[in-house]
């Protein structure tokens, strides 16, 4: 029973921040600089999500995540489709951990 209370509590505190923007953007006219800030968010979020998290792929060998990341950067730069970038990074970690 207690576990369901925890689950529902976790669900509420997760979903409320997610949905609030859907109800407020219609009522607020953001100034230009805020719009610019919001447009920059995806690139900032991607940066913050990639690093330093990628070093924890193999927690005691942080370099493995970094090497796989460099492989991913090179392939993505060569315009390889993202799904093959992902598969190559997986293969890189796999080979480095055999």
């Amino acid at each position: 029973m207690m576990i369901w209370v925890i689950i529902i509590g976790m669900a509420l505190v997760t979903v409320i921040p997610r949905i609030i923007p859907a109800f407020i953007v219609d009522f607020i006219q953001f100034p230009d600089w805020v719009n610019k800030w919001l447009q920059a968010i995806p690139y900032a979020a991607l940066g913050a999500l990639i690093f330093p998290g990628i070093m924890t792929v193999i927690p005691d060998q942080p370099y493995i995540g970094v090497v796989a990341g460099i492989v991913a950067i090179l392939l993505a730069w060569l315009r390889i489709h993202v799904i093959f970038v992902v598969l190559s990074a997986i293969l890189t970690v796999f080979l480095l951990t055999i």
Partner: peptide
């Protein structure tokens, strides 16, 4: 090894 997948996806998007 598949733990790197989402990081690689973030890179592939960025």
């Amino acid at each position: 090894s598949m733990g790197v997948a989402l990081y690689a996806m973030f890179i592939g998007l960025l």
